[in-house]
Write a protein that binds this DNA or RNA. Structure first.
Lengths: 189, 189, 189, 189
DNA sequence: GATGAATGAGAATTCATTCAT
DNA sequence: GATGAATGAATTCTCATTCAT
């Protein structure tokens, strides 16, 4: 059996970790995470051998969730513009709906506790998305931009756009559109 | 005065802090920072009352340096495009030349140890730049984009571009140009 | 429960604290206290959240023990003189038997680490004794002396008497009697 | 020259020490004491080789001042009762006028930083007073009480009385009289 | 499997003292 | 003689991890 322990409890710990890492960074104590999850300190270590393991799995879990969200309900039949917009839309919607997870990812991305291996695996999770993006943009993007760079730009513009959306929630649709416009025009041939 | 508090030593501590915070995050021990700077543990605290003070001052110091770098040698006579490009160019050059400082800023930006007050003061340091940017782009930018958002996009694109430059140093000029193009086209009317 | 917090261990820490605070004052290191109690440094803090908590609880614990000792085996049927003497006798006996606790109490009483709240609660522990003293002395004491002042005099004379007893153990009974005589005569109408 | 350094500055440091030791105990930092006295940290150590020296000299200085105060204006011609009362009166007056010094003495008396030697020398300062007390009381005191014990009782009753005077300043004369009455009657034959 | 007490290696400070200026 | 920066040992407290129950 791959995972004999209760998946439910494992998730409870990861959920608690999201909140605490978002608020306090990777320095958040395992004891607090365990308590927030409703467990005793020691229990955390039956689900994650070390704190670093927890942090790395947390990272991968959120990245996987995000990757899945981006492709959910993907309009295979849509135009390249529509398909690209769909990914952007999901990016913004998921980010707006999960501010703590976004904050946690930002913390983890700058932490040396997340291993190179984890970062690689996380990259892998987005391979399909990058591939689709590449396909969608084939006729639109300038030759200056390779797929990885385009993806990174999309991601970073979404991040910035989300910051403005969090600051001015009333202008959510405005920034969502403006952000995508900047992307679409920016990379255009 | 016996020995005056030397600005030189203060800078030595900040310099050591840059390296260690870049590598280990805000959790880097003050003892290590002091030792790296060539001082005894206690000496750090004659220059910075608390670790939080050190972190906040470090943040402001780097931000101030960056802000100054962006306007250095600013081509007042240039065209709006040239002036904007100049800021972009400085952003990329400073970033490429100071990877540890960039990493440190990223660490500090996600840390709750950097106070709201420090963040405000840091914002203030970029006011003039944002103002000039706004002036430069007056005739170019789409009405969708307010000055703050434009500045944030410029900054985030530079950050992303720098990541690619660090990864592929050979393609520095390529990415530098491509990144600016994306910006200039992206926000265009 | 894994291992329950044991009252026994808590007492061991308090006992160690008595010895060290008596000898070194409230500056006695928690590490030494823990080691003297037979524990690792950190263990102390699972029983007392902070050193101040330890000190305050130590204070209250000793005061409670003393208060209990004074009323132990109290001769309800005795004459007022006998009953008052009984309290004096207990005071002296407890003090002579517990020199370290006496020393510790003296240290704690002059320390600003013992809170006003703790002092109040300690006062409360002696309320019954003060009340009984007042009743016992009703027919004997001069109107000059209120109950609180009488109690304070009894206490301070006992303290002084104990110092002489410690210095000249052979004369214990002599000083014990002489001290009480001074009290009884001193406050007489 | 016995003391080549400025006596004035030495006194300034001792005065500052009184306030700080009264408030914070012997743990009061030398740096704070120096600053309160108007000097730099290091200057303190040209007047007192170590903190322990400062503490011991502080102790002796205050004890000497008190001893002198008790005999000031001593009524050589008065009756034994009057002469004894005079000492009591001085004790109370000095104590009421110098609460910080009293508090400091209490701190120092329980501190292991005041050496046995200092305690002996302090005792010596009161020898004359004890002698006079003995003479005064020759015809009055019960044989139960040796001179040292009588002196200690006088001192401790004064201390207790002063506490009540500080708490109820309106009743100063009442407690001052009542305290002495308790002493005088208490030790009487 | 769950619990949480026990552990001890750090971590940030503090502070008496020294000594270059 | 005065100054106060420099020092590093000592202190309180935290926390990941272990393991007896």
């Amino acid at each position: 059996m791959a995972r004999p322990l209760s998946e439910e409890k494992r998730e409870a710990i990861l959920t608690a970790a999201v909140d605490l890492v978002a608020a306090q960074g990777t320095g958040a104590p395992t004891a607090k995470i365990a308590k927030e999850a409703g467990f005793a300190e020691g229990t955390l270590f039956t689900y994650f051998a070390t704190k670093d393991d927890l942090l790395n799995e947390l990272f991968l879990e959120i990245e996987a969730e995000l990757a899945a969200a981006l492709l959910d309900d993907y309009p295979t039949d849509g135009s390249p513009y529509e398909r690209t917009r769909h990914i952007w839309s999901r990016l913004i919607d998921w980010g707006a709906a999960n501010p703590a997870k976004r904050k946690t990812i930002r913390q983890l991305k700058v932490s040396d506790r997340v291993s190179e291996a984890s970062r690689c695996r996380a990259s892998g999770l987005f391979e399909e998305i990058v591939g689709r993006l590449e396909g969608n943009l084939a006729g639109h993007v300038s030759t200056e931009y390779d797929a990885a760079y385009v993806s990174a730009i999309l991601d970073t513009l979404a991040e910035t756009t989300l910051e403005f959306i969090m600051r001015y929630p009333d202008k959510r649709e405005h920034y969502k559109r403006a952000g995508f416009d900047a992307f679409w025009r920016g990379i255009a041939r």
